[in-house]
Structures are given as structure tokens and as C-alpha cells.
Simulated scan of single mutants.
Amino acid sequence: MHFLSDDLDQYIVKHSENEPELLQQLTRETYQKILQPRMLSGHYQGRVLSILSKLVNPKSVLEIGTYTGYSALCLAEGMQSKGELHTIDINEELYDFQRKYFDLSPYGKQIYQHLGNALEIIPKLNTTFDLVFIDADKENYSKYFELIIDKLNLGGIILSDNVLWSGKVLDTKFKKEDTSTPALIAYNKLLKEDPRVETVVLPIRDGLTISRKV
């Protein structure tokens, strides 16, 4: 969802950091070969993720929802030299595609793929994290938060994508089959009211929340 005019949006992108060549290649191949290519973080949001990661300079990163690996590579740009990034996805058909681009990057040996249900995998991760990015099934955002909050180091950051859900979070009535919208409304309320984090919502693309553990 775009909250700004196309001209202003293009101006913002033009005056932000350039998209790395490897990520341009990843984008092209995703659009050529993979279903639902719009799920990519994309140039502008990718640069936002990159600079936020550089500000945090995490030793450990967790990503919930890998897709084709674009956002993982953006987040990896800010990792410490001996840092590690764990990324979880349920789609085994994308595993080799992700690995290809991870290994073409400077961070290949630092990125660990986990295949399966994140609700089952997260409790088994024997580490804590400085930075977490949630971009998976919206119905489970609140459950992911509860699983990761105790694994998040003090001062650590949770980034949550799609929190404005094309503006649907303003809806007061939902279609019976729409489970994502009420789940995101509940999640946004959770982040606002939970005393363990301080939160700000950014109107970037489809909405990006930054929550800091206090």
C-alpha cells in the first residue's frame, strides 16, 4: 500500500541508498520463477531494513518468514563480523533458491536456514537475539511475539512487517474468511500495551513497526 503520491514515492526512493546488484538479481529471478513476487521486501524497504540493522549492529538476528531471502540479506548487512542470522520458512520449495543467493553474498556462512513451522522451531533455538524480523503468517504474529520476547536481549529490536495491512486495520467489520485483519489489529494492540516493549509504527510500504525491549 502506498500512502504517498507516486511522484513523491519515486523521489524518496531516488534519494535513498541504491539497491545492491545481488539483490537486483534476486528480485529479477523471483519475478521470473516464484509465485507471489510482491512478497519481496523490495528496494526501498530493503534499504530501511539494512540501515536499521546497521544501527543495531546485531550479533544475532532471527527472521520469521524467509520467502526468497531478500530481507535476510538486507538484515545481514548490519551484523557483526562474527554474527549469525537464523531464518525460518515453511516452504521447502524455496530452500535451494534462498541458499543460492545466501552463498553468493558475503554472509553465506553466517546465515542458517530452518525449514518448518516457526511455532515449533523458535522454542528449540538455543540462543538469544538482538534483532528479530517478523514477516510470516499474520494470524500467528502475537504467538511469535510471545515466543521471542524472552529470547530477545534487553534493548533488542523487533521489526514487524505488514502491520497496516493495506489499511484494513481500520475496518470494523471483517469477512468471515478474513483471519489476518483481526489478528493484526490484536497484534498492534498488544505491542502498544505490553510494558516489555516500546513501539512506534512507521507508514513504510504496508506498515513497519519497530518495538524495543525495555
Rank of each mutant, 00 (worst) to 15 (best):
M1P: 04
F3N: 07
L8P: 00
D9L: 07
Q10F: 07
Y11R: 11
H15S: 09
N18Y: 09
P20L: 04
R28V: 10
R28Q: 15
K33L: 08
R38K: 12
G42E: 06
G42I: 04
H43F: 00
Y44I: 00
G46M: 02
L52S: 01
K54F: 06
L55G: 04
K59V: 00
S60H: 06
S60M: 01
V61F: 14
L62K: 01
S71N: 04
A72F: 02
L75I: 00
L75K: 00
M79Q: 09
Q80P: 03
S81D: 13
S81M: 13
K82M: 13
K82F: 12
G83L: 05
E84I: 01
I90V: 14
E92R: 13
Q98H: 08
K100M: 11
Y101F: 15
D103L: 13
K124P: 03
N126A: 03
F129Q: 03
E139K: 11
E139F: 04
N140C: 08
Y141Q: 05
S142Q: 13
F145M: 06
L147F: 04
L152Q: 09
I157T: 04
D161G: 03
L164K: 04
L164R: 00
W165L: 08
W165E: 08
S166A: 15
T172N: 11
K175E: 14
K176W: 13
K176T: 15
E177S: 15
D178Y: 04
T179Q: 10
L184C: 09
L190V: 13
E193Y: 10
V200I: 14
G207Y: 00
S211G: 11
K213Y: 02
K213G: 02
